[in-house]
Simulated scan of single mutants.
Amino acid sequence: MKKIFFLGIAFIFIAQLSSAQSKDETVIRQSLEEQRAAWNAGNIDRFMQTYWQSDSLMFIGKSGITYGWQKTLENYKKGYPDTTVMGTLDFNILEVKRLSVLYFSVVGKWHLTRSVGDAAGYFTLLFKKIKNKWVIVMDHSS
């Protein structure tokens, strides 16, 4: 009888953990969709709302490492000064993986369709739950 009781408790715990993971993954995927929509609307400020607004945000790109939300925003605005250069963003999420109760990693491919020439690459994002919100704390895009 004890074994059945403990198996029942374990089953409930696993079911709740699975449900939480599924919910968190859905929230992360929705935030990435919000980013795509903001980009395609030409709104870099709104696009950046998914990032951690901290000097500790890390962005790794072809020019090296940038630290800080404000500097990352400035670099985006400098590199993509208008909607012609921004183009239309699309991406394919290849993997969303829970690393712990506080972290998820996301790997994907991005593509910009532009009249000035298409661009494409890959990204790895590290999401962290901060103040009950999932935010990107590290972005490695190439």
Rank of each mutant, 00 (worst) to 15 (best):
F91D: 05
Q53L: 05
S18E: 08
S141V: 13
A120M: 12
G8F: 11
G68P: 00
Q49A: 09
N75E: 14
D139G: 02
E33H: 07
T26L: 12
G87Y: 02
K77V: 12
F6H: 07
K3N: 13
H140D: 06
V106P: 03
K109P: 00
F104N: 08
K128F: 05
G79A: 14
E33M: 11
T83E: 10
A120G: 09
A15L: 14
Q30T: 14
M58D: 01
D90C: 04
L17R: 00
W134H: 06
M86P: 00
Q49D: 14
A20I: 10
V85L: 01
L99I: 15
L57K: 01
Q70L: 13
D82T: 10
Q49S: 12
K23Y: 11
F104V: 06
K131M: 08
K62H: 07
K128C: 09
V101F: 09
T66E: 04
Q21M: 00
E33L: 09
I44L: 04
Q70V: 10
P81N: 08
S100F: 05
S100G: 08
R46P: 00
R114Q: 11
M1P: 03
V116T: 15
L102K: 14
L112Q: 11
L99R: 07
S142N: 15
A37P: 00
R46K: 14
N40C: 12
K109L: 13
T83Q: 13
R46S: 02
L73E: 02
L125D: 02
I60M: 06
N132G: 05
D45M: 03
E74Y: 05
G87M: 05
L102E: 11
N132K: 14
E34S: 13
S105F: 03
N92W: 04
I65F: 01
T50W: 02
L102S: 08
H140N: 13
G79N: 15
R36I: 12
I130S: 06
Q70T: 13
W134V: 04
K78F: 10
G42F: 04
S31W: 00
T26S: 15
K97H: 09
F123C: 00
M58G: 03
K109R: 14
R36Q: 14
R29W: 00
L32Y: 04
V116W: 01
I130N: 03
S22D: 07
L17N: 10
D24C: 07
D139Q: 06
T66D: 05
A15M: 13
G121T: 02
K128Q: 15
W52D: 00
T83P: 04
L73N: 04
L57E: 03
S100V: 10
K129I: 05
G68F: 05
L125Y: 14
D45N: 14
L7A: 15
A37I: 15
D55W: 08
M58E: 09
F6Y: 15
I14G: 03
A120L: 06
F123Y: 15
K2I: 06
Q30I: 04
G61T: 02
K78M: 14
S63N: 11
I93L: 09
I9Q: 05
S100Y: 08
K3R: 12
P81M: 11
K71F: 07
N92R: 12
V137N: 12
D82G: 11
L126T: 07
I136E: 07
W52T: 05
W69K: 04
L125N: 04
M86T: 07
T88W: 06
A10R: 06
Q49P: 00
T26I: 03
